[in-house]
């Protein structure tokens, strides 16, 4: 019974998942749950294992430790498994000499679920020249072609590795709009996991967030819950800062002021009157965790 419930509400579950190259752990102790229908941001410093995690999920690499369940299955290279998953690698692997049209024809030939009409109307709406070799398109257009191809197979899960990293701001917004539209059209049947460094963009389109840093899963929750449980406390210097009501993620001191970014342990936490409680935005929260992880790494 539990298993059935997990299948319907969870798109991805990883337990102690890890990948080791020689003596180096590219990903370690990764414990995540991605709810079905969510658009999840995957963030963390370079080298935290984001790409490694995505590769493990599509079985382009096999785990050295732990396990993952994706759409109720263990990652494997069978066509049954991969037909439900769209994966767009960082470098957007397209054939530069081949036209957009030819890419679509190839997809239609290789995939039984292929919705060519959907891909064509999507790309025409974006005014992408269908007869032009992909190598002659702009970066933004190439990313849109990659996305359209990944969506044309009607996946239940879409994994995007830094899809907007190389795009100019306008192309970035256009890409995110296409992605949000696809999520709307799928009506909760599509789960998206997208790695990126651009936190402000992510807050717009994503509703969940996973933060990998220092070989650990630092955060894995809905953005709403993360924001609700993290606060910025501003108060006088030279006063005891610790409290059972919260855990300190980041502590900043000035001559006569102390700022604490904290995770609340107690929902009904009330600060003393000398401390002011402010909301923190997702960017501040993620940066605080990344700094904390970096300091711990340096001390090790």
């Amino acid at each position: 019974m539990d298993n059935v419930a997990a299948k319907t509400t969870t798109a991805i579950q990883a337990t102690d998942l890890g990948k080791r190259y020689g003596s180096f752990w590219a990903l370690k102790d990764c414990n995540i749950v991605v709810p079905r229908g969510s658009v999840t941001a995957l963030v963390g410093p370079n080298g935290a294992g984001k790409t490694t995690l995505l590769k493990l999920l599509v079985d382009l690499s096999s785990p050295s430790a732990g396990s993952a369940t994706v759409l109720g299955m263990t990652p494997n290279q069978s066509s049954g498994y991969l037909s439900e998953i769209g994966y767009l690698a960082q470098e957007i692997p397209l054939y530069s000499q081949m036209t957009v049209e030819k890419h679509l024809a190839m997809g239609a030939h290789l995939d039984t679920n292929w919705d060519n009409g959907l891909a064509v109307s999507r790309l025409k709406e974006l005014k992408i020249p269908m007869g032009r070799p992909v190598g002659k398109l702009s970066g933004g257009q190439r990313a849109q072609v990659g996305l359209a191809l990944a969506l044309a197979k009607k996946p239940k899960l879409l994994l995007l590795d830094e899809p907007v990293a190389a795009l100019d701001p306008l192309a970035r917004v256009e890409f995110l709009t296409s992605l949000a539209q696809a999520a709307t059209d799928a009506g909760g049947e599509l789960t998206v996991v997208m790695s990126s460094h651009l936190l402000a963009d992510l807050e717009r389109v994503c509703d969940h967030l996973i933060l990998l840093a220092a070989g650990e899963t630092q955060l894995c929750d809905s953005i709403e819950h993360i924001i609700a449980t993290h606060k910025l406390l501003v108060g006088p210097r030279n006063e005891a800062t610790s409290s059972p009501g919260y855990s300190i993620i980041k502590e900043t001191h000035a001559v006569n002021e102390t700022n604490l970014l904290v995770r609340l342990n107690d929902k009904n936490f009330r600060s003393s009157s000398r401390w002011h409680v402010h909301d923190a935005n997702i960017e501040d929260i993620v940066l605080a965790y990344m700094e904390q992880a970096k300091q711990e790494g340096d001390e090790r």
Partner: peptide
């Protein structure tokens, strides 16, 4: 859909 198109936010 229109709101998502205008803002690129999650539906």
């Amino acid at each position: 859909k229109e709101a998502v198109t205008m803002t690129a936010v999650n539906p």
